Amino acid sequence: MSNPEGAAASTPVLRRVGTARATALCYRVLIRQIVSVGRIAALSALGAIMIVVGWVVGNSSNSGAGADSGMIYDGASYADGFGLIVIVPIVSLVFAAASLGDARDDGTLVYLWLRPMGRMPLVVAAAAAAVTVSLPLCVIPTTLGGWFATDFVAESGGVALGALAAAALGTVAYSCLFVLLGLLFRKAVLWGIAYVLLWEGLAVGLGDFAERLSLRGYARSLLSQIADVDLGFTTYGLVTSIIVLASVSVVSLALAAVRLSRLNVD
């Protein structure tokens, strides 16, 4: 006769992986997945272009009465126009969309998805991996490019600090948002580019309401507030900008965890 109790006793019980351990495990796997020579080289070249052009802008500006304030404005505008509009969202998109999107497309996500652990550690690890790679590629060119464009005049340090803070917090917020996008759409990069160009680039010019729904509006407000430069757009308070960017990051990760739990992974 069969022994149900013995059979049940011999069945191995899978222990749930702790949150910290699960996050660290997924992070190690995913960061290796998204880092490639081609991506790093292409996006590093984009950052190098920003730095070089910033240096050219700074050296080609005219000196004279009132030149310092003009150079501060030029540096802040350059950090905003090239760094926060192009480099930060594009670099974040490439790595964040790939963090879970690539694993989903090539079938390796199932090995992490089937482990006895919560979905939030996997999502947090994906965002952390994307941020780890994206931060230096976003922050360094945005900060140096904006600073070089000021030609190092007095108070130019404020532009560099503002660009650093805006690029860093913007990168985190965009990365979390695009991790969610990578779980919602198969061609997440195409959808992300459409969002960056059509909404962040164009729709925000339609009015204050649209700008309030744009990450760029809050990132550039950080730059404007810290550098103490009026860039000619609606500016939100320093604390408000930080809270909104942080809230977008947290909500995006929470929604991504819900989406992942309902996703059919094979």
Rank of each mutant, 00 (worst) to 15 (best):
L184R: 07
V133P: 00
L231R: 09
G182L: 06
T142R: 02
L245M: 13
G83I: 04
G118F: 08
R28G: 15
W147C: 07
W55Q: 02
T19Y: 14
G64R: 09
T234E: 14
A7Q: 10
S10P: 00
A254M: 11
V53F: 14
Y236V: 07
D80Y: 09
V37P: 08
G232P: 08
G18D: 13
Y78F: 15
L46K: 04
F152V: 03
Y27P: 01
S241L: 06
Y111G: 10
A126L: 05
R104E: 05
R216I: 00
V53M: 10
S10F: 10
V239D: 14
G205D: 07
R262V: 09
T150M: 03
A42C: 12
W147T: 01
V153G: 13
L260G: 05
A165E: 02
A128C: 13
I193M: 15
V53H: 05
L25P: 01
G146K: 02
L164G: 11
A173N: 04
D74Q: 12
R220V: 03
G237K: 03
S92H: 06
G182T: 05
L177W: 05
S175R: 01
E155A: 15
Y78K: 03
L190D: 12
S134L: 06
I51S: 11
L202E: 10
A254H: 04
I31M: 05
N62M: 14
P136T: 09
G145M: 10
L135D: 00
G83V: 05
L184A: 12
S61Q: 11
S156W: 03
L122W: 07
V35C: 13
L181C: 08
C138A: 15
G64N: 12
L43A: 11
A188H: 02
A8V: 10
G75K: 02
D105H: 07
T132F: 02
A149F: 04
L112K: 06
D68H: 11
L164W: 08
L255A: 15
A256E: 01
L93G: 09
A227G: 09
R104I: 02
L112V: 09
G207H: 03
A48Q: 11
Y236A: 14
T150Y: 09
F185I: 05
Y73A: 15
G75H: 02
A67H: 05
F209A: 15
I140W: 03
D208H: 13
V123A: 11
N62F: 14
A130E: 01
I193D: 10
I140Q: 09
L255N: 07
A130G: 14
T11G: 10
G6M: 06
R212D: 15
A173V: 06
L164H: 05
L25T: 14
L43Y: 07
G81A: 14
P121Y: 11
